[in-house]
Design a binder for these strands. Sequence first.
DNA 1: CCGAATAATGAAAGAATCTTCCATGACTGC
DNA 2: GCAGTCATGGAAGATTCTTTCATTATTCGG
Lengths: 154, 154
Amino acid sequence: MTAKLDRIDLKILRLLQKNGRLSNAELAEKAGVSPATCHRRTQRLFEEGFVREVRAIVTPRKVDKGALVMVGVVLDRSTPESFASFEQAIAKLKFVLDCHLVAGDFDYFLKIRVGDMEDFNRIHGEQLIALPGVRQTRTFFVMKEVVDNAPLEF
Amino acid sequence: MTAKLDRIDLKILRLLQKNGRLSNAELAEKAGVSPATCHRRTQRLFEEGFVREVRAIVTPRKVDKGALVMVGVVLDRSTPESFASFEQAIAKLKFVLDCHLVAGDFDYFLKIRVGDMEDFNRIHGEQLIALPGVRQTRTFFVMKEVVDNAPLEF
DNA sequence: CCGAATAATGAAAGAATCTTCCATGACTGC
DNA sequence: GCAGTCATGGAAGATTCTTTCATTATTCGG
């Protein structure tokens, strides 16, 4: 990383992480280089995949997705086919923000956003426990979002 | 929500969620309105907080943060002071992406990004178990990121 | 159903920005 | 020291932003 990114690249990355809609002119000024140089640097950071995407982050509560739920999942069998089948199915569920295969007491951890508890209970009964190979789930309702999706520090 | 956002607003929000650096001209064309109207709509969506922020999402692996760990935390006491103290301390730890107070077997769930397991072990020993009021932690190393930080569907 | 008031729209235009070209300066390896 | 490579910033035409304004659509009381 340090081999590929100098101080200016890091500055651009951090600025864009804070405000992805900065104009090239503003970015250039804040980074301390000319607009032309800044444009080239930024383009490279995108092309080489340092920036995966630039995304507007919508306020969940404003679009009726104010409830957050963490769910631990245990599968019936720990076979590659079982995992693949589960992962294929979960990728289609739009309310799943995170799905991670983990080592420990669970097979998967899910992070789910829905409108409210009632909403979740319906989804849990109709969609989650119906996923292929699910033996049991453990639900952790989030009562307070202390830190949610903090920007990456580097 | 449906009362405040019409079809065009929703289109703009979804387009910006997919590509936060779309120019107003491109946005206007894709949304099917004039640049002037699109500009006003977009400005309103920002001003009224429908868009929390626009952020470049940096590829974790590219900046030596390729390892993801979920951690369940149990505190010694379940008092308001105990929670407040923990939350205040955790907000200062830059490697913590998520920290949520949950109902269930744990008090908090953490989502943490570090360089590798060794990195995590040092952090766990030096910083996590040293947090105020922590009785025990349970670590779930992420072996595969099936879905990470998916965009909100609405 | 009407009409007035309010709100939203798109064309237009000056200001700002983007994006590329190019000449210059800096660094590298021999 | 020197040739080759690379990064830099100025310049400028093309594009975009952002506001103004006249027009159209919508709302609401009567």
